[in-house]
Every structure is written in structure tokens, then in C-alpha cells.
Design a protein around this nucleic acid. Structure first.
Lengths: 228, 228
DNA sequence: GCAAAAGTGTTTATGTTACACCCATGT
DNA sequence: ACATGGGTGTAACATAAACACTTTTGC
């Protein structure tokens, strides 16, 4: 017979590190806490996992409460459960990270939190709980993963220029890259499709490209290894 | 004032994928469940996280209950929390994986579980709960990680021959490697130290080596990238 | 016409792959 | 003496790195 365990148990939450890219800097979305503990401090969006709720579903629920976005890239990061991490008791948090396209950045304030804001990863204010540690882990994961899996596109508009994606990689990895070598390698994979449209701007227009997910997956099956 | 949240909350457990290497095959340690649900089925070692207990500490507690080992390599893998994964209710499990040296394999039966046994990863019996999925995730992680971080040594005796470590990599990655190229690359990193001692056996003795952790860390800081 | 970003190939250096024979020991 | 696994170098190939100038547009 199904029955529940009767043990004293830690509480379970989710927290989300929400990354965005503004063209020059990698940013994350923080909210200012409206209640104790850490009232008025900046923190990662998060909240309790409901009973019988899937964990990723809970993280997506929190994400969508802050951003009104669904269907974005999100992945479990790591679970943080040091006994002292929440002054109210033993609260275990399953941290996630999400990647948001810049044309989908939510208008500031469209949230139930007192206040929300995007901060460049180099200029993060003091954070509540152990959220600084969670952010560090998320950055490490993103930096490690982006070189081997084509997730960078999730931080760009659907149509992007090669300069944009190069800036993204440079911002995340923190080092400059040779333009010709970058393009050569990126295009050599075969899943970056040049379009017939061009960016507009105050200088020479740049050709737009898109990431072909289907092509990537089929190439991956036939033994491609992506590495930038 | 610190106080605990009063919410209905899922229960929290840890499960451990314990890897060993017997010289030819990668193996994992399973226990046969003594109680319902899934009584008499094979399962990963695991159990409840106590309130105010650190999560990794709980995983190490379970590991040491099964193996009497402490101080082994262990890392958090992923948290599994699908609502239907445990028939008794909403039970969230933080899965870990551990690597055990072959000279430290516990004698079978030295455990509080009804029965325990090592199984080659190619011959795993049906597992309780979603443990098959956890095992798959652990294998993927190990295969992905071992190529970029020198954790293979945790599965070998402190002193090992180059053939032994090559067999280990071949067993985990599931492909053969050229002996000369493997040795050349491995030794080129500079943190595999040849010793003056040799293995004994029924044929030509092989030189023993050890992994120099200090040297690895200092090389890593000066920008080495390990990749096999 | 000038400022600003887009676009494009070749050479050199580095790393990876393929490959075959002699050596030391136990039986 | 033979069976078994240990140990070693070089040449061909593939990938990565370095590098500078012309083009297109808006102002």
C-alpha cells in the first residue's frame, strides 16, 4: 500500500540562476527580497517545491513567475543542502540555471517580487543565503558546458550575426578569439545556417544566421564532436 | 528568529552509485532490498537524509554503512524528484557516485543489508525504483568526466601499471586505444610518477606508477588541460 | 570621404594517428 | 625454448593558430 514516510525531513526549495546576454555582458536576473530573512537583499528567484510537484516543474514555475517565460532552456545545476544555509532551519535547495534570449528579457517589475533587475556577472551585489556560491557554480557550469554543447544560441535572438555569437563566447569564456578562426570552425560544423537577411545598423550590414537544432542532433548521432 | 517552515514537503533521500574496477570490467555495488517496496530486488545503496544533516554527509554515511570505507572519491550526481518515482509518496533523492579502489573492495556481506554484490555494468539486474535511470546518468557522468579530469586513479590501487590504467580507460570508454599513444600522452602531462618498484606476475614485470595529486593541481593552475 | 564593423585565405606550428618489433620473466 | 605481456620511436596526417587587407554602409 502506498503511504508516506513519517520522518522529520528538511524542507525542499528550488533556486534559479537566470542568465541573459545584452550584447556585451553576461547578466543574471535577481530579485530583491520582500520578507525576512535577508529582507531587502538581492537573491536568486526561487521558492518551495510543492508536494507531488516535479522538481524541474517547480523551477519552471518560479522562472515563469519572474519572467512570464515558458519553454526556455533550463537544466538542473546542483543541490545545496548545508545545514546552516538557511537561518530558519534545514532547507535544501535544488539549484537550476536557465538561458534567456535577449528579445525575451522581461520588462523590469513584471513580477510578484518587490523588485527585479539584471546584473552583469562582474557586478553582482551581495546575495542572500548561499546564493553567491550557487551563482559561482552556475557560472562554472555554463563556462564548462558552452564549449562542448551548442547552448550559446539560447542566449541569442533566433537570428543572429556571427559577430554576436563571437561576442557571447568571449563574454562567457572571458578571452578574445580570432575572428577568422572562430567563424571557420563554427561554420565547419554545418549546423549554423546562413540566411538571406541582414542586420541593420549604422555600418555595413551583417548576414544573419540561425542554429539548426535538427541538423545538430543528426550530426551528433553520426559522431560529431562540437568544441569551441 | 529562526523557525522552520510549515509546508507539506517531500521526503529526502540519498542514493549512491558505487563504482569499482576489477581489472577488466567496471562494476557497481548493489544491495538486495530486505523490505517493501521492491522487496528482494536489487537497488542502489541509499537512505534518508536526517534533519540537519549535510547531504554529502548522508551519502557518505550510507556508503560507509555498505562498505566500511571513508575518505573515498564521491561527488553529487543529480537530484531525482519525479512525483511517481517512489510508490510510497513523494520522495526526492539526491544521487551521488563514488569510486572505490580495488584493494578496498569490501568483503561481500560486511553490510547491514540482506545481501550485497558487485555487478559488471554490462550485466546489471533489474533495479528498484528509478535506479536504472540513476545508474545511466552516473555512467554518462563518469564517461564524460574521466576524459577531462584525472579521477580514474581513484579506481586503481595507489601504485599501478600503465597497462592497468589503459585497461581502465578502455573499460569505461568502451573503445580500444593504441598502447604507445596512450602512454605517450599520459606521461606527457607530468603528474604520473614512475616508481622504482615493479609488479610481480607470471610474465615480465611492469613498472609501477603513482598519480601525483599535488603536481596535478599545480600544473592545473598554470593552465594545463588534461584530456585523454 | 571617413569612421565603423563585415568579410575573407594562406602559411606555420602543434598535436594526433598509425604502425612493428625486441625484451624480460615464469613455466 | 616458448608463451605472455612489457616496453619503445618515427613518419604521415589533421587540426589549430597566427596574421592584414578590402568591402559596405551611415553620417
Amino acid at each position: 500500500m502506498p503511504h508516506t514516510y513519517e520522518f522529520p525531513r528538511p524542507a525542499l526549495t528550488v533556486d534559479c540562476v537566470i542568465f541573459g546576454f545584452n550584447g556585451g555582458n553576461l547578466e543574471i536576473l535577481l530579485i530583491r527580497r520582500g520578507i525576512e530573512p535577508f529582507k531587502d537583499q538581492w537573491a536568486l528567484p526561487g521558492g518551495f517545491v510543492h508536494e507531488h510537484e516535479d522538481i524541474e516543474a517547480a523551477a519552471r514555475r518560479e522562472l515563469s513567475e519572474e519572467t512570464n517565460l515558458t519553454g526556455v532552456f533550463m537544466e538542473q545545476l546542483q543541490t545545496f543542502g548545508a545545514p546552516g544555509r538557511d537561518p530558519r532551519g534545514h532547507v535544501v535547495s535544488v539549484a537550476h540555471y536557465a538561458l534567456i534570449r535577449p528579445d525575451e528579457h522581461p520588462p523590469e517589475g513584471a513580477t510578484d517580487a518587490a523588485e527585479a533587475g539584471w546584473f552583469p556577472v562582474g557586478q553582482i551585489p551581495p546575495l542572500a543565503f548561499d546564493h553567491a556560491g550557487i551563482l559561482t557554480a552556475a557560472l562554472d557550469r555554463l563556462r564548462g558546458k558552452i564549449r562542448f554543447q551548442p547552448i550559446g544560441f539560447e542566449l541569442l535572438p533566433k537570428h543572429f550575426t556571427l559577430t554576436e555569437i563571437q561576442s557571447l563566447y568571449e563574454a562567457i569564456l572571458g578571452r578574445e578569439t580570432d575572428k577568422r578562426n572562430f567563424r571557420k570552425k563554427l561554420l565547419s560544423f554545418g549546423f549554423i545556417i546562413p540566411l538571406k537577411t541582414f542586420s541593420t545598423g549604422s555600418h555595413r550590414p551583417a548576414r544573419l544566421h540561425r542554429f539548426d537544432k535538427r541538423k545538430y542532433h543528426s550530426l551528433q548521432k553520426s559522431g560529431l564532436n562540437f568544441e569551441l
